[in-house]
Measured scan of single mutants.
Amino acid sequence: MATKAVCVLKGDGPVQGIINFEQKESNGPVKVWGSIKGLTEGLHGFHVHEFGDNTAGCTSAGPHFNPLSRKHGGPKDEERHVGDLGNVTADKDGVADVSIEDSVISLSGDHCIIGRTLVVHEKADDLGKGGNEESTKTGNAGSRLACGVIGIAQ
């Protein structure tokens, strides 16, 4: 089992970053940390998408990683996509320092995120509470600013 993974985020604009993942036990939580720069100040949706395909930019990554066919939600919700990591918060300089621990994603097994795409979005994720159909699919997080395929790390 891989215990570490990394993702280099890039987009068409100024947004870029490096996100690290570490899972010490196969059924334990995954620590997610790193930094994203070039964002507007505020909240930005942060999700693992189904495919590791960036051939047409971030759009070819498909929908959120959702092997259990659930509705979109927040990272602490029972009803959520596996890939729903909530929001990252950018400061006035456009930098989001990421520090998350998640017990639904994994670096092995059915919820493995390796080979899938991590995406940072234009807007805040409403965590499935926006009151419309799009909220239950995407959290109304808007366009995909930057993305990268999650790969095994040393």
Score class of each variant (00 low, 15 high):
Ala2Arg: 05
Thr3Val: 12
Thr3Gln: 06
Thr3Tyr: 10
Thr3Trp: 05
Lys4Leu: 11
Lys4Thr: 09
Ala5Tyr: 03
Val6Pro: 04
Val6Arg: 12
Cys7Ile: 00
Cys7Val: 07
Val8Asp: 06
Leu9Pro: 02
Lys10Met: 14
Asp12Trp: 05
Asp12Tyr: 15
Asp12Pro: 15
Gly13Phe: 09
Gly13Ser: 13
Gly13Met: 03
Val15Ile: 15
Gln16Glu: 12
Gly17Ser: 04
Gly17Thr: 05
Ile18Asn: 10
Ile19Phe: 02
Asn20Ala: 05
Asn20Asp: 10
Phe21Leu: 08
Phe21Glu: 06
Glu22Thr: 08
Glu22Met: 10
Glu22Pro: 01
Gln23Ser: 06
Gln23Val: 01
Gln23Tyr: 03
Lys24Gln: 10
Lys24Ala: 11
Lys24Gly: 10
Glu25Gly: 08
Glu25Leu: 04
Ser26Asp: 05
Ser26Ile: 14
Asn27Ala: 14
Asn27Gln: 15
Asn27Val: 13
Asn27Thr: 04
Asn27Phe: 04
Gly28Val: 07
Gly28Asn: 15
Gly28Gln: 13
Pro29Tyr: 03
Val30Ser: 04
Val30Trp: 01
Lys31Phe: 06
Val32Ala: 11
Val32Gln: 01
Trp33Ser: 12
Trp33Asn: 11
Ser35Pro: 03
Ser35Trp: 10
Ile36Asp: 04
Lys37Gly: 13
Lys37Phe: 13
Lys37Ser: 15
Lys37Ile: 14
Lys37Cys: 10
Gly38Asp: 04
Gly38Glu: 01
Leu39Arg: 00
Leu39Gln: 05
Thr40Ser: 11
Thr40Asn: 10
Thr40Ile: 09
Thr40Asp: 08
Glu41Thr: 03
Gly42Thr: 01
His44Thr: 01
His44Cys: 02
Gly45Val: 03
Gly45Thr: 03
His47Arg: 11
His47Asp: 08
His47Tyr: 08
His47Asn: 12
Val48Glu: 00
Val48Ser: 01
Val48Cys: 04
Val48Asn: 00
His49Ser: 07
Glu50Gln: 10
Glu50Leu: 05
Glu50Lys: 07
Glu50Trp: 15
Glu50Ala: 12
Glu50His: 02
Phe51Cys: 14
Gly52Arg: 10
Gly52Tyr: 15
Gly52Trp: 15
Asp53Phe: 10
Asn54Pro: 11
Ala56Lys: 12
Ala56Pro: 06
Gly57Glu: 05
Thr59Ile: 08
Thr59Asn: 13
Thr59Gly: 05
Thr59Ser: 15
Ser60Asn: 09
Ser60Thr: 14
Ser60Val: 14
Ser60Cys: 09
Pro63Arg: 07
His64Pro: 05
His64Gly: 01
Phe65Gln: 07
Phe65Trp: 13
Phe65Glu: 07
Asn66Thr: 08
Asn66Val: 06
Pro67Ala: 06
Leu68Ser: 01
Ser69Val: 15
Ser69Phe: 14
Arg70Met: 09
Arg70Asp: 03
Lys71Met: 08
His72Asp: 06
His72Gln: 10
Pro75Met: 08
Pro75Phe: 11
Pro75Val: 15
Pro75Glu: 06
Lys76Phe: 14
Glu78Phe: 08
Glu78Thr: 12
Glu79Thr: 14
Glu79Arg: 08
Glu79Gly: 09
Glu79Ala: 13
Arg80Thr: 05
Arg80Leu: 05
His81Asp: 07
Val82Gln: 00
Val82Ile: 12
Val82Thr: 08
Val82Pro: 04
Gly83Leu: 11
Gly83Ala: 10
Asp84Ile: 03
Asp84Thr: 06
Leu85Ser: 04
Leu85Tyr: 00
Gly86Cys: 06
Val88Gln: 02
Val88Glu: 00
Thr89Gly: 11
Thr89Val: 06
Thr89Trp: 15
Asp91Tyr: 01
Asp91Arg: 03
Asp91Met: 10
Lys92Ser: 09
Lys92Met: 10
Gly94Val: 05
Gly94Arg: 01
Val95Lys: 10
Ala96Cys: 15
Ala96Ser: 08
Asp97Arg: 12
Asp97Pro: 15
Asp97Gly: 10
Val98Cys: 04
Val98Trp: 03
Val98Gly: 00
Ser99Met: 11
Ser99Val: 13
Ser99Phe: 07
Ser99Tyr: 14
Ile100Gln: 06
Ile100Pro: 00
Ile100Asn: 01
Glu101Tyr: 05
Glu101Asp: 06
Glu101Met: 11
Asp102Tyr: 04
Ser106Met: 00
Ser106Gly: 09
Ser106Glu: 04
Ser106Gln: 08
Leu107Trp: 02
Leu107Ser: 02
Leu107Lys: 02
Ser108Gly: 13
Gly109Asn: 01
Gly109Pro: 01
Asp110Pro: 14
Asp110Phe: 11
His111Val: 04
His111Gly: 10
Cys112Trp: 04
Cys112Gly: 11
Ile113Lys: 00
Ile113His: 01
Ile113Glu: 02
Ile113Thr: 05
Ile114Arg: 01
Ile114Asn: 03
Gly115Phe: 00
Gly115Leu: 01
Gly115Ala: 02
Arg116Val: 02
Arg116Cys: 11
Arg116Asn: 03
Thr117Gln: 12
Thr117Trp: 14
Leu118His: 01
Leu118Thr: 00
Val119Tyr: 02
Val120Met: 01
His121Val: 10
His121Glu: 07
Glu122Leu: 07
Glu122His: 07
Lys123Thr: 08
Lys123Val: 08
Lys123Met: 10
Ala124Phe: 13
Ala124Arg: 10
Asp126Glu: 07
Asp126Ser: 07
Gly128Arg: 09
Gly128Thr: 03
Gly128Lys: 06
Gly128Ile: 04
Gly128Cys: 15
Lys129Asp: 15
Gly130Ala: 12
Asn132Ile: 07
Asn132Tyr: 08
Asn132Met: 06
Glu133Trp: 14
Glu133Ser: 14
Glu133Thr: 09
Glu133Val: 12
Glu134Cys: 14
Glu134Gly: 14
Ser135Tyr: 06
Ser135Lys: 05
Ser135Phe: 02
Ser135Leu: 03
Ser135Glu: 15
Thr136Trp: 05
Thr136Ser: 14
Thr136Arg: 05
Lys137Ser: 15
Lys137Glu: 06
Lys137Trp: 06
Asn140Asp: 14
Asn140Phe: 08
Asn140Glu: 05
Ala141Gly: 10
Gly142Leu: 04
Gly142Asp: 06
Ser143Lys: 11
Ser143Ile: 12
Ser143His: 13
Arg144Ile: 15
Arg144Met: 09
Arg144Cys: 10
Arg144Gln: 12
Leu145Pro: 01
Leu145Gln: 12
Leu145Gly: 09
Ala146Thr: 01
Ala146Val: 07
Cys147Arg: 04
Cys147Tyr: 10
Cys147Trp: 13
Gly148Ser: 01
Gly148Tyr: 02
Gly148Pro: 03
Val149Lys: 10
Val149Arg: 11
Ile150Gln: 00
Ile150Val: 10
Ile152Val: 13
Ala153Glu: 11
Ala153Lys: 06
Ala153Pro: 07
